[in-house]
């Protein structure tokens, strides 16, 4: 199955791309998807998504389609054809 992962703000900057298609073996939680993305890219993208212990950072906003999903939501699964957006916090200035 394939899902589209979109990157926004600083996540996009460190990913170096705006979006990509990722193949998953089976439906998974948002947190598991983030770990797969972090493993795939490593380095700065992993550091912005995950803390030192490998847990998703709570300050990164995540959307499944247009709906926000919490990192600790284990009941929502990413399925074939879904679009997930990872958005780092931004401010004014």
């Amino acid at each position: 199955m394939n899902v589209t992962v979109e990157y926004a703000a600083q996540v996009k900057q460190v990913a170096g791309i705006g979006s990509e298609s990722i193949e998953l073996a089976a439906p998974c939680t948002i947190a598991e998807l983030a770990r797969q993305v972090a493993e795939r890219h490593g380095g700065p993208l992993s550091n912005i998504l995950l803390d030192g212990e490998g847990a998703p950072r709570r300050s990164i906003l995540v959307f499944l389609g247009e709906d926000q999903v919490r990192w600790d939501d284990d009941s929502t699964l990413v399925r074939d054809g879904d679009t997930v957006t990872l958005l780092s916090p931004v401010s004014g200035g």
Partner: peptide, 24 residues
């Protein structure tokens, strides 16, 4: 609710155009 903790990756200075800040 959106950001339960101070985002560690945010910096005060960042790339932006005036035409972007103007729209917002």
């Amino acid at each position: 609710c959106l950001y339960p903790e101070d985002p560690p990756s945010w910096r005060r200075e960042f790339p932006v155009f005036g035409a972007v800040s103007g729209t917002i």
